[in-house]
Design a protein around this nucleic acid. Structure first.
Lengths: 135, 135
DNA sequence: CTAACAGTTGAACAGTTCATCAAGTGTTCC
DNA sequence: GGAACACTTGATGAACTGTTCAACTGTTAG
């Protein structure tokens, strides 16, 4: 072994590095909230379903084999973070992804999780072509 | 599993669509784990710090005004999900973002959280140019 | 009007997670 | 070798989260 004292990591002068975060403080808390909402497998699966198109609660519950209430609670968490849209259609309430940003986030994470984009081709129908544009 | 339109749900209101998830099952659990790890403000702030370049634990702890152990624990969670890299340099252990995918995820979420990418300009040094790109 | 359907909300319990402390490993320097 | 530094790890308790049940709102049909 050789001497490898890193000059970038000085013994006692660590405060040289910018202490300030690269974005304004509120954004991090907000982003963390978004991630927390997506950080649950059942909820994330829900988002991928909505990524295929709008769906009502009953429909989702049937597809997932879950209780209406359970699905509604999950949707509430997602809605609190502004990740899904909601509109009424007769007796039904249709949910969908809030915007393209959410779809991008979803796509990116699944791409990273798959460690290979082969399986994502089926998901591509969700995302048109240019992911991040305007809202 | 080719189709499953709920009979209890008004047929005329629903457009027929596949019930099957768009990605293979494992990916969702994995992506949820990633989101869960990022779904905590202190941990997310840590990632943005690492996004600016590698840093050792002492350095981070000083910047955050936190305990060494606390930072180490946070890093462990991130490391368990493969979000950060680790390498030894003398007495120090340098952490950094695992790959570009993580940086993209970070960028995208902060962009969505900021509801406008003006503030992200300072963060741009982290990512090349376009946040989400098809590979 | 009432009945039935579609969905929401509040409360309670179980399970999980985060920060703190104390004790441990690995590395460099004397 | 041993002391000092730079982390890591396990355990503990407080705080949070997710599911379930029951009661509630709103809509449509008869």
């Amino acid at each position: 072994m050789s001497k490898l004292i890193d000059p970038a990591c000085a013994p006692h002068d660590h405060t040289a590095r910018p202490t300030a975060p690269p974005v304004r403080p509120g954004a991090i808390e907000r982003a963390a909230g978004i991630f927390r909402a997506m950080g649950d497998a059942p909820r994330l699966r829900l988002l991928t379903i909505l990524g295929q198109g709008e769906a009502c609660v009953t429909e989702i519950a049937a597809a997932e084999g879950e209780d209406l209430s359970t699905i509604s609670q999950r949707l509430r968490v997602l809605r609190n973070e502004g990740l899904v849209s909601r509109r009424r259609n007769g007796k039904h309430i249709l949910y969908g992804l809030a915007d393209q940003h959410v779809a991008d986030l979803l796509f990116n994470a699944l791409a990273h999780a798959s460690e290979g984009r082969a399986d994502l081709s089926r998901f591509a129908s969700l995302v048109p072509a240019t992911p991040t544009k305007k809202e």
